[in-house]
Structures are given as C-alpha cells and as structure tokens.
C-alpha cells in the first residue's frame, strides 16, 4: 500500500497541476482587470467629474464633468428596470401559479431563453426600427424601452429561478384556506419571492446600466442633464467610449475615471443585492 510513482499518480499530479494553473491564470486575469481599472481611473477621478456637466471645450481637455452621463445612465437603467419589472413579475407569477408544468409555460421559458441570447446591438437595431415606425427621435424614452427589452429576459429568468424554489406545500396551504389563484399569487407567492424580486431587479439594473450597444441607437448623447423623456440622454458606457475615441490624453484619462465610476456602481449593486437578499430573506420560509 506504499506510495509509488506510477502512471496513475503521475496523471493525477499533472491534471491537478493543470487545473490549479488554469484557475490561477483565470483568477489573475480577472483580478488584473479590477486592478487596471482602479489604478488608471483613480488618479483622474475628482469631485468636478461627478458634479459638473461638460463645458464648451470639454472634449479637447477643458473644464467639466460627466454628471450628464451619470444621471442619464441612472435614469435609463432605473426606467428600464421598472418597465421590465411591470412585465416580468406577472410573467413569473403566471408561469408558477397558473401554468405550472404546461406546454405553454415551457414555450414561454424557451422564448425567454431565446430573448436572453439576442445580442444587445440587435435590440438596439430593433428599438431604432420601432422608433422610426413611431416617428420618435433618439430619446430617454426610447432608451428606456430598449433597455427594458434587454433586461426583461434577465429579470424574468432570475425571478423564475427563485419562484421555482417555493415549496408546493406553501401554495397548497393557501388553496386549502379557500384562496383563489390570484390571491395565492399576490399574497403568498409574492411575499415569499420578495428577496428574489429585489435581487432580480438589481441584477437587471446592473446589466442595463452597463449596456452600451442598445442605447447607442436609441438614447443618443447630449451634454445636458436630462429633463424630458423625449430628449436625448447621455450614458456612462457611451461617455467612456466617446472620450476614449478622442486624441487628447486628458480626455482619455477621464474615460478611465468614467469606467471606474461605472465599475463602482456595478460593484455597489452587486454587493447590495447580496446584502438585501440576506436581509429580506429573514421572513421567508425555507
């Protein structure tokens, strides 16, 4: 039973080493991204960037900030998330309470998977087509609608996964008390999945705020703080993209700062969703 060096032990060592090495490479690459963004973005980040809109010579290196893009992105993502919530909540509830295990439910899930995979640039092109048909221009509203389409499958899938974990007995108890399906859905299932809804919203919000390709067509870009649903609106990802495209190093520096702001927002949302999920799940029956 003593240890010997044979093919088996050698093979084990090689593959264990390979797996560990691959993991180290991937982990290093992934941490490297966070570090790069932090190191490049931090020096360029200042109060002015966060609180001012671009001045006349901003894109050649003059005074100003990207408040327009920060606010614009928040408006876009928040609007898109709320709109997507209006649709995905009834869909998730219907799939679980009304159409559990039916062919229709399977089909809705399959089309959700299809929608989930459609690239955001295609949503952008579709949103643009839709706006042309409606005679709209690039605007906050157009961006919100397109982002809602992008976020819809993400949010629905996240909710669907939570809702499926709800024990059947819980609904049975509700039915046994004489509740209708609607009452069961709204009063029992909804409450049980509340933490899931919040996490799904934050997940979708994070995806929405980072999506550039879909708002490129539909929301436009402007140096002003958004005031109307029908006016164009700036967004952070596009701010990064456009500022990087200029030949001036000062402006490119600001792009790094904008990328850092974007990353920080995502980090905040990601940590927040973990925290909220933990807090809210206290009343949930496991």
């Amino acid at each position: 039973m003593k240890k010997r060096l044979n093919r088996q032990t050698l093979e084990e060592a090689i593959f264990k080493g390979l797996a560990g090495g691959a993991f180290l490479i991937m982990a290093a690459a992934l941490f490297f991204i966070l570090v790069t963004v932090l190191v490049k973005g931090l020096p360029a980040l200042n109060w002015q960037m966060l609180t001012q809109v671009p001045t006349a010579g901003y894109y050649v290196g003059k005074e100003g900030g990207i408040l327009n893009a920060i606010l614009g992105s928040l408006y876009l993502a928040a609007g898109g998330t709320l709109l997507a919530l209006l649709l995905s909540l009834p869909i998730a509830l219907y799939l679980e309470v009304y159409a559990r295990g039916t062919r229709w439910a399977n089909m809705v899930r399959l089309s959700m998977d299809v929608l989930w995979g459609i690239p955001s640039i295609v949503y952008g092109a579709f949103g643009f087509t839709l706006m042309l048909a409606l005679g709209m221009r690039a605007s906050l509203l157009g961006g919100i609608i397109t982002l809602a389409l992008v976020e819809l499958p993400i949010m629905t899938r996240a909710m669907d996964e939570v809702i499926r974990l709800i024990p059947f007995e819980l609904k049975e108890v509700s039915y046994a008390l004489g509740s209708t399906r609607l009452e069961t859905a709204m009063k029992v299932v909804f409450r049980q999945m509340l933490p899931g809804i919040v996490t799904a919203m934050l997940l979708a919000f994070g995806r929405g705020i980072g999506d550039a390709a879909s708002v490129l067509f539909t929301a436009g870009y402007t140096d002003r703080v958004p005031t109307s649903l029908l006016r164009p609106v700036a967004s952070l990802p596009l701010a990064v993209f456009f500022q990087l495209g200029t030949p001036y190093p000062e402006v490119q520096q600001r792009a790094y700062a904008a990328a850092l702001i974007l990353t920080l927002i995502i980090m905040f949302v990601s940590l927040g969703s973990r925290w909220i999920a933990g807090r809210l799940s206290q009343n949930v029956i496991k």
């Binding site: 039973m1 003593k2 240890k3 010997r4 088996q8 032990t9």
Partner: peptide, 19 residues
C-alpha cells in the same frame, strides 16, 4: 489494516480504497 497504518503519510490512498 493487516498491521499497516493506513493513515501513515507514505500510504497510497487509492491502494487502501482498493482493499
């Protein structure tokens, strides 16, 4: 196991499990 300590450091675990 037959007088050999299977938790000794120089033991081949797979050989133990085969037994």
């Amino acid at each position: 196991l037959d007088g050999v300590n299977i938790y000794a450091p120089d033991i081949d675990v797979t050989a133990v499990r085969k037994k």
